[in-house]
C-alpha cells in the first residue's frame, strides 16, 4: 500500500494530539510513516504505532534545537527521498507551515495549508479548507508533485489503530542553509496546567468587557470548572490583561473546539476568523447588538460579572 509521510509534533517524546489526528487522516490515504525529530524522538514510537504508524523514522542532532526550521526541512526531505510517499502531512502550527512551505518548494510540489478535513479519491487527496474568516468552505487538490498538506488541530478524531510499527534511524545530512538562523536563547512557555488552547475540547475566552487583568480570574474559574483552555481577544491582549499566546483570532490561535464560550467579546471579523468553526458557540455580552450573537447557539444578553460566576457555581454544583 502507498505510504504517507506524517511529520510528528512532540515535546521531548510526548506526541501532541494534532499529530494523532493527522494519523487518522493519513490512514485514509495510505500507510502512515511518521518522522520524529529532536530530543526524545525515539520515545514517540510506541504511541505512534498505537495510532497506526507502520514505521517511525527518527533523527536527533543538536541542529534541530540550535537553528530555526531549516534543519527539520532537511530531515523531512531525507525522509521523503527514502520513502517516496503519496502525500506529506504536517500539523498546521506556525513552524509546521514553514517546514511544509520549504519542502514544497524543494520537491516541486503544490501546497495546501490549514486543511480541516481530508478525503481521498482515485486522483489523490482532497483537502477541505475554511476561508474568508470561515464564510466559505472549499475543496482543493494538488495537481503537481506529491501533495504537501498542513492540517489544523481538531480536524479529525484520535483513533487507536495499533500496528506492529518498526523504528528506523533516519540519516540526515544538513545543507549549508541549515545553520543560517541561530537560536541564541530559548525560554519555554510556562505550563498553566490547563489544556493547550488549540487542542482543547472547550475554550473559554474573555475580551475587553472583562475590564482588567485581575478580572480574568472569573474567566479562568469558569474554564477550570469545565476543564477548558482560556482564550482572549486581541483587545484584552493589547491591554496587557492576558498573554499573547492565548489570543484567539486571525493573528492569534485558530481554535475549533466542541464548545467556545465568549464573554465580553464583540465578535469582530478578525476574532471570528479564529473561532467560527467551533461546533457550539455560546456568548455572554451586555450589548444585544454585538455581532457575536449572529454566531451563537446560545447567548445571554447580560453582565458577564453576574452571569459568568453564576454559571461557574452552577457547573460546580452539578459536578458535585
Amino acid at each position: 500500500m502507498a505510504e504517507v509521510l506524517v511529520y510528528v509534533d512532540h515535546l521531548d517524546g510526548a506526541v501532541r494530539k494534532p499529530t494523532l489526528e493527522l494519523l487518522t487522516l493519513a490512514r485514509r490515504l495510505g500507510d502512515p510513516v511518521a518522522v520524529a525529530l529532536g530530543a526524545g524522538a525515539a520515545d514517540t514510537a510506541a504511541t505512534l504505532a498505537e495510532h497506526g504508524a507502520v514505521k517511525v523514522l527518527t533523527a536527533d542532532a543538536p541542529e534541530f534545537a540550535d537553528y530555526l526550521v531549516v534543519p527539520k526541512v532537511d530531515a523531512l526531505q531525507a525522509a521523503y527521498d527514502a520513502v517516496s510517499p503519496v502525500a506529506v502531512l504536517v500539523p498546521s502550527s506556525a513552524e509546521g507551515k514553514e517546514i511544509a512551505a520549504r519542502l514544497a518548494v524543494r520537491i516541486g510540489s503544490g501546497l495546501i495549508t490549514d486543511a480541516i478535513d481530508l478525503t481521498a479519491d482515485a486522483k489523490g487527496p482532497v483537502a477541505t479548507q475554511s476561508v474568508f474568516a470561515a464564510a466559505y468552505t472549499t475543496n482543493s487538490r494538488i495537481t503537481q508533485g506529491t501533495p504537501v498538506i498542513t492540517v489544523k488541530p481538531n480536524s479529525a478524531p484520535v483513533e487507536p489503530a495499533a500496528v506492529a510499527g518498526s523504528v528506523e534511524e533516519l540519516a540526515v545530512t544538513f545543507g549549508s542553509a541549515a545553520t543560517g538562523t541561530k537560536v541564541v536563547a530559548r525560554t519555554p512557555r510556562e505550563s498553566t496546567g490547563r489544556p493547550e488552547l488549540t487542542e482543547a475540547a472547550i475554550v473559554v475566552s474573555g475580551g475587553r468587557g472583562v475590564n482588567g487583568a485581575e478580572n480574568f480570574a472569573i474567566i479562568e474559574a469558569l474554564a477550570d470548572s469545565l476543564g477548558a483552555a482560556v482564550g482572549a481577544s486581541r483587545a484584552a491582549v493589547d491591554a496587557g490583561w492576558y498573554p499573547h499566546s492565548n489570543q484567539v483570532g486571525q493573528t492569534g490561535k485558530s481554535v475549533s473546539p466542541q464548545l467556545y464560550i465568549a464573554s465580553g467579546i464583540s465578535g469582530a471579523i478578525q476574532h471570528r476568523a479564529g473561532m467560527q468553526t467551533s461546533k457550539t458557540i455560546v456568548a455572554v455580552n451586555k450589548d444585544a447588538e454585538a455581532p457575536i450573537f449572529d454566531l451563537v447557539d446560545y447567548g445571554i444578553v447580560g453582565d458577564l460579572f453576574q452571569v459568568v460566576p453564576q454559571l461557574t457555581e452552577a457547573i460546580k454544583a452539578r459536578k458535585g
Binding site: 454566531l295 447557539d297 446560545y298 447567548g299 453576574q306 454559571l311
Partner: peptide, 16 residues
C-alpha cells in the same frame, strides 16, 4: 439562529 436570552438574574443558571 441560536437562542438568545436576556439575563434577568438567572442567566448563568439557564446557561448551565
Amino acid at each position: 439562529a441560536g437562542t438568545i436570552v436576556n439575563d434577568e438574574g438567572k442567566g448563568g443558571d439557564q446557561l448551565a
